[in-house]
């Protein structure tokens, strides 16, 4: 379970970190690195406080069986949603996330042509511009980091799993930060959807085990239950991708027939 915890936290940190980095880079290039880094650090501080408050104090007051049920439900909700989204992307029904396009869009929003260049701005204008940059960076880190914090709290709440969850998430985010400093571009090559699919499968499997334990079950496969469930959800994801593709093609044909019939009338 410790390896699974580290791996899930690392992958969640990697995916969400990549999405936050895109905005942080755009803010740095348009509103200055001080605002961008300041907003990022403030966002990280808030997330750390949430993890400490929720994971360190609140959850430990709940009896283990109820804790398992609560955490299992949270992991299932996050996992099944990630899995659904990733399946639709693999099936071609929803566009893949494009970090370069998201970067260009954020740059365009922040770098309005109506604004004067930083050199021509008055101190008050520069300050207002920096405040917008700070808020944008802060909001992006908070928004993308919320799921990382949720995963760390949920995965790290059981005895002996706190350190692996924190280490995994910090390693994932750190890898993104270092890669961002090295390339100074959005990390377009990170296979975000594949990672989301894998994380969705793993979170759903762990969530099922914990929720089941919370309901008083003792799983038949014992220690191997997580592995069996990972294989099951992976198979289910494969079936769902094929099903979604087939359904989409059938609806296209139906729509085409209806259009042709309408035109013939």
């Amino acid at each position: 379970m410790i390896v699974t915890t580290v791996l899930i936290a690392l992958l969640v940190g990697l995916v969400e970190g990549t999405e936050a980095l895109t905005v942080v880079l755009a803010v740095g290039l348009t509103r200055g690195w001080r605002a961008s880094i300041g907003g990022t650090l403030a966002g990280l501080a808030v997330l750390a406080a949430v993890v400490v408050l929720l994971g360190g104090a609140a959850l430990h007051a709940i009896p283990l069986q109820w804790l398992n049920l609560l955490l299992g439900t949270v992991l299932l909700l996050v996992g099944l949603r990630w899995l659904t989204k990733a399946i639709l992307r693999v099936a071609g029904l929803v566009k893949m996330r494009d970090e370069e396009a998201a970067f260009a869009k954020t740059l365009a929003q922040l770098d309005s042509p109506a604004e004067r260049s930083p050199v021509e701005r008055s101190p008050a204008e520069r300050s207002a511009s920096a405040r917008i940059g700070f808020a944008t960076s802060f909001g992006a880190v908070l928004l993308e980091g919320a799921e990382v914090a949720l995963a760390v709290v949920a995965l790290g709440a059981r005895p002996g799993t706190t350190l692996p969850a924190v280490v995994g998430a910090v390693a994932g985010v750190l890898a993104v930060v270092l890669a961002g400093i090295a390339v100074r571009k959005p990390l377009a090559r990170v296979p975000e959807n594949t990672i989301k699919l894998v994380v969705g499968v793993m979170l759903s499997a762990v969530g099922t085990v914990w929720a089941g334990e919370g309901l008083g079950m003792s799983w038949l496969a014992g220690q191997l239950t997580v592995v069996v469930l990972i294989a099951w959800y992976a198979l289910l994801a494969w079936v769902a991708v094929r099903w979604a593709r087939a359904g989409s093609v059938a609806r296209k044909v139906e729509t085409g027939r209806a259009t042709t019939a309408g035109a013939a009338r």
Binding site: L80, T84, L93, L229, W232, A240, W243
Partner: peptide, 26 residues
């Protein structure tokens, strides 16, 4: 049976979520 029921319920939940979201996307 409870374990089988839980897994079946969650699997149906996932497949129906995919179907519903796919319809919305189309």
């Amino acid at each position: 049976a409870a374990q089988a029921l839980m897994l079946a319920g969650l699997s149906i939940t996932l497949l129906l979520a995919v179907r519903s979201s796919a319809r919305q996307a189309v």
